[in-house]
Write a protein that binds this DNA or RNA. Structure first.
Length: 274
DNA sequence: AGACGTACCTGACCGC
DNA sequence: TGCGGTCAGGTACGTC
């Protein structure tokens, strides 16, 4: 599930519960995620106080006193839980224990996620972050900014938007949704998205992300108390995973179509999206 | 340099 | 009930 809105929802939930808390110890049950955990991670984190939670694209950034940052990516299936004790669930790979009793559990059955450590002052140079494109919710992300990133690109717009170097934080779901609201075909050549088309697309990206964050934020209250799980919420999609169903709010009568691009599912309305 | 396919890993689901 | 095949929201790497 984790694309930008889910990571942002998690970030807000963690900030509300764990800001200012001190890590008492760290349990690593499996360290072989997408890349091995830093071997000294437990030692580095122990005794540190969490100062704030940040985000860059789909990366969660846990800022610690002493100037270090824990970088967390949830991959395809990673989840974070806040609880009173480790859940003992299958695939609970890492547990941060806090003074006073709370724990933060990282659960990831596919192990496509990762964690790394970085000096706060050098975050921008970190190999995972240095080439990342603009934050789509930043004030200066607009049509011209997006058009510049897409200029000259020969690849389909669908593939271009999944490239984190073009825009940070979009994944398969929100790319499909944004292209739908912008009325752009996922097959369209990325370089042709300029001017008004780029403006519509930039606005659509912001809108779908903000709506998803709002949905996550509103359901967060309920969910945290029940299970401690963060970042999962009901959200209705216009086209994603709706192959064969009517194009929403549209009188075109055309069904949502599923195609495969770069080995990934794309959902769109061929009539409305050009 | 850029674009594409493939690999990584586990689980859920579908049809037989 | 069990089995094989397919698919899944992400990224990195090799190859052309």
């Amino acid at each position: 599930m984790p694309e930008l809105p889910e990571v942002e929802t998690v970030r807000r939930g963690l900030a509300a519960q764990l800001t200012g808390r001190r890590i008492s110890h760290v349990t690593v049950r499996r360290g072989d995620l997408r890349r091995p955990l830093p071997p000294d991670m437990g030692q580095v984190l122990t005794g540190r106080e969490v100062q704030s939670f940040g985000r860059r694209g789909k990366y969660l950034l846990v800022h610690l006193d002493g100037g270090r940052v824990l970088i967390v990516h949830l991959g395809m299936s990673g989840r974070l839980f806040v609880g009173a004790a480790p859940s003992g669930a299958a695939h609970e790979h890492v547990v941060l224990h806090f003074e006073g009793g709370a724990v933060l559990s990282y659960v990831d059955h596919r192990r496509f996620g990762l964690m790394d450590l970085c000096e706060a002052a050098r975050l921008g140079e970190h190999v995972l972050l240095s080439a990342m494109g603009p934050e789509p919710l930043a004030a200066d992300f607009d049509g011209p900014a997006l058009a510049k990133r897409l200029s000259g690109k020969d690849t389909p717009i669908k593939a271009a938007l999944l490239d984190q170097r073009v825009v940070a934080g979009l994944g398969n779901i929100y790319v499909c949704e944004a292209l739908f609201y912008a009325g752009l075909s996922p097959r369209r050549r990325a370089g042709s998205v300029q001017g008004g088309r780029a403006a519509r697309l930039a606005a659509a990206i912001k809108n779908v992300l903000e709506a998803a964050i709002a949905a996550g934020g509103s359901s967060l209250r309920d969910y945290v108390q029940a299970t401690g799980e963060l970042g999962y919420f009901q959200h209705r999609f216009a086209v994603y995973d709706r192959a064969g169903q009517p194009c929403p709010g549209c009188d075109c009568g055309a069904a949502v179509r599923r195609i495969v691009q770069s080995n990934r599912s794309t959902f769109y309305c061929a009539k409305r999206q050009r």
